[in-house]
Amino acid sequence: MKISISRISIYIILFLYVIVLIFLVSESELNTTTVKDISIFTSSIFTLIIALLLFDRFDYRKKIFDKKLQVVLELIEFLKKTRLGISQKTEVIRFVGGLLIDRKAISNFKKSELDFNSKIIFDINEVSSYFQQIEMYRINPFMPKSIAESLKFIGEQAFYGKPEIEEKYINNYTKISINNKHGILKIEGCSRPENEMSFNDFLDLYLNALKEIESWINQHSNFKSELNL
């Protein structure tokens, strides 16, 4: 039978209580002061034991961890269903394709001859729903802070509100759409992220989010998760 940490703590406290009590009785005169000290000590010990019993009874720590784990696992499934539509236009490249959020797939994709220093843009109408869903995960009270921080780059406030694009984007950009069949090589109605970002940085931030998720799970597990991220 599995013994809880709280129960072990109670056994240790009771053992120490007996030792201290024996010492007090044997080394002190049994007078009013000694009896008072023993009463205060006994009261403190049993107050602590009651607190441990209540903590163990309601098991708040486990309940909170279970909630955290649930929301993290839901986030993993959500991210793994993400498909980036990629449209890149530079002086020498015209590319339209797709990419799943997967560490191996991203690593292999980054070996291609695309311009990964190209700045990214979004059509807000194509990505706002996805960004809002990410934001709901990010602000969930049970989402671990390190993971929430790693999601900021695709949160609801991640994109620049105005659709006007600076002139430097006109002939050199990578347009990102999300969970559409593919991107389209057009710049009308698009916005850049609030913090200007290269295509390479955007992919690396996704990889970092996956890394933070795996790190958190491994940190709270007795074995490596070996997730297919």
Rank of each mutant, 00 (worst) to 15 (best):
F142K: 03
V72P: 10
L203W: 08
I124V: 08
I19V: 06
E126Y: 03
E126L: 09
Q70K: 15
T90F: 02
E194H: 15
L84A: 02
E156M: 14
N218W: 01
P193Y: 06
K224E: 08
N179I: 06
I12W: 02
F116W: 03
G98Y: 04
L75T: 04
F199I: 02
T32Y: 10
E194R: 15
I147C: 05
L84C: 11
E194D: 15
S28Q: 09
S26Q: 08
I10H: 00
M197R: 14
N31Q: 01
F202L: 06
N180M: 15
M143N: 08
L185C: 13
I8Y: 01
S107A: 04
M197A: 09
D56K: 00
E212H: 04
S26C: 12
L24W: 01
L227M: 03
V20M: 01
F46I: 03
V92C: 02
N125R: 07
I76G: 13
I8C: 02
V72G: 02
I165F: 14
L53A: 01
I86G: 10
Q88K: 05
L52I: 03
S44R: 09
K104V: 07
S128T: 11
N140V: 03
I170Q: 12
Y206H: 12
I147T: 04
K81E: 14
K152I: 07
F122S: 04
N172Y: 09
G161P: 15
I187L: 12
S128I: 13
E149H: 06
F58N: 08
G85S: 10
I86C: 07
A105K: 05
L84Y: 07
D66R: 12
I154N: 11
R57T: 05
V25R: 08
K68P: 08
K89P: 07
S221A: 00
F95T: 00
R192E: 06
S39W: 06
Q219V: 01
N172Q: 11
G97P: 03
S150C: 06
I165V: 13
L54I: 11
I93Q: 04
I213Q: 02
E27C: 09
I8M: 04
M143G: 09
R138N: 09
N31H: 03
F58A: 00
L73F: 10
K63R: 14
S118E: 00
S9L: 04
N31L: 04
T90Y: 02
T42I: 02
S146G: 03
K2A: 14
G183R: 10
V35G: 05
I139G: 11
F109R: 02
P141D: 00
S112N: 03
K111P: 12
Y160T: 07
P141G: 00
L114Q: 02
L79K: 08
V127P: 14
N172K: 12
L185P: 15
L100K: 06
I22R: 01
L53M: 10
I93N: 02
F116E: 05
E194K: 15
Y130Q: 10
N228H: 01
M197L: 10
M1C: 09
A209M: 07
L227K: 00
D123N: 13
D123Y: 05
S26T: 04
K104C: 01
V25L: 11
F122T: 07
D204T: 12
F55I: 05
L229N: 05
D66V: 02
F23E: 04
N179L: 13
K162Q: 14
K81N: 14
I176F: 09
N125F: 11
V72R: 00
L73S: 12
K168M: 13
L84Q: 05
I76P: 15
F41M: 01
I154L: 10
